[in-house]
Design a binder for these strands. Sequence first.
DNA 1: GCCGGTTACCTTTTT
DNA 2: GGTAACCGGC
Length: 648
Amino acid sequence: MKKFLFEDSLNDPQREAVLFREGSLLVIAGAGSGKTRTLTHRVAALVQEGVPPRSILLLTFTRKASTEMVRRASELLDDRCEKVSGGTFHSFANSVLRKYSTYIGFPGGFAIIDESDAEDLVGLIRKELDLAGKERSFPAKKTLMSMFSRAVNKVLPVEEIVCNEYTHFSSEVQDIAAVHREYAKRKTLHGFLDYDDLLVKLRNLLTEYPEIRERISSSFQYIMVDEYQDTNKIQAEILRLLASANRNVMVVGDDAQSIYSFRGANFRNIMDFPNLFPDTKMIRLEENFRSVQPILTLTNNIIDQAAEKFTKKLFTKKLAGNPPVLVSTGDEKAQSLFVVNKINELMLNGINPRDVAVLFRAGFHSFDLELELNRKGFSFNKVGGFKFVESAHIKDLLAHLKVLFHPRDRLSWYRILALVDSIGPKKAQMIFETLDKENLGYKGILKDIFPAKLAKPLETLRGLYASFEKDKLSVFDMGEIALNYYMPILKSRFDDWPKRQKDLEQLLVIMERYEDPREFLTDMTLEPPNTSSGNSMEISSESARRLTLSTIHSAKGLEWHTVFVIWVLDGRFPSIHAIENEDALEEERRLLYVAATRARENLFFVYPRNFYDRNLRMIFSNPSRFLSDIPDDLLEKQFLGSSGFRRF
DNA sequence: GCCGGTTACCTTTTT
DNA sequence: GGTAACCGGC
């Protein structure tokens, strides 16, 4: 075999994985062991050998990860690598299902609904079936939706999920199942697929139509899956079907970093991979290239205390380094001040802000820190937590566009109509039924088919949809037309409309990059932007230099010179919700492990000693149980006072 | 049936 | 501190 160009830059197990060819391969890759490096080198090696890029399928956890890997492979070799097939399981499912939509019972195509749309639909059904009685505590739409999703992702009946995981609702199991059935029916009726349906329908398509399975699976010579520890049973099944023709599958992951059980992932799944593909070869990457020894010693210690032992031990050659520190501060403000001051100090020592990250369990945990950073003039990028596209004003604007392409989108029509003066739920329903009966879509709004009483209220909306009749509108034009219509509504409904207007203008900037409005709408659902910057007006070259604030989930796979993990306070991390349940608690431990293994040189854990949670009406004062028993020589302890009421 | 004003009730994590 | 469910006036 011809030697691969960059073979010499790999260590032995990495090289073995890169050069592996026929059959199935499981790579257990510890944190910082060069997992991404191995994948990108393998992509480049395959392309170099003449494997057509399109016949390489690279499935990743986020689109960002996929584009980044493709970019790095292209850097190694050349831009043939750009043509590699890749994306998330969901985006891959979407593109396949669009092609075969008649086979899955959606001859007219489908629209993908995000979580909050799905919840709204469930809420509609919940109301219609009149289950929300006063005396009766029936699960909220959100809870119902999470029950349904868990059932799908764990491949279990809803009834079983309710009885095992939501025991306090087990008396309502019949009605919950009824809502579930109705939800499925409505989705078919309106041409909706939710996130879970994308996976389920793809699996069904590949199972029920052998000739389609054959065509698709033979088109992929090599399949690679990243972050395999966070896939669930349906995804494993899809993978088995996709690989049925060539059987060349490589999956990479780390069971100690499995943090998505709420999506049906199970850290044991990765060890089941050899059952899915007999004769699987296993390679372990155990050399950590990221962290200095003191950090690695600590992270090994954290994961060693897991209830279930993991199968590897990481080592590093970077011996010297600073010990990790656990800092306890008087209160929340002092926590923020400690972080800000430390960052300032780092920058004075020449550290680039982009090499620094602050990580936390949940998006809102950084609110106070954000205030403090703004006050001191630090700009930052925040990743995770808050979802731009789920805010009301963004959803409003998108709804007006969605119905152009999906006339049966009941949820969007209700949303649009509810914004019109003197139209409420009843009239919206009536208008929708009239449009839907003849499948008229937005063109129906232009016609004179409504009672005279509605003519006046519908006048401006009619004007909007008349403007969409013009030919040759760019995606940006459409956004601008919709925004012009929406601005008066925005001003009347939100006191903080200037801020929201900026968001909408930001949305128009995103729209400018698209040529196909359908693609834009799909991306907003499947791969929505989850980054916000402290100051969105700044140019993007500056944003590359910024400090990062991120949820731990969104920090997966990344690394920084210095990492702060804030709120390592028992009750917050592990979260109070996890303390009762042993599996959940173990996942919190892995989550902390993921956070800590992001650091190369400096690692700080911070918590306020004195914190009263107003909502929970509880005082928390102890450090995270995962850190409290670690000896001082592995984890240095610092004790700081309260902030007082220092303000400028 | 619509709408504006009130209160309660949260807030993991993401495709 | 933001929104979703609830209530009473029009």
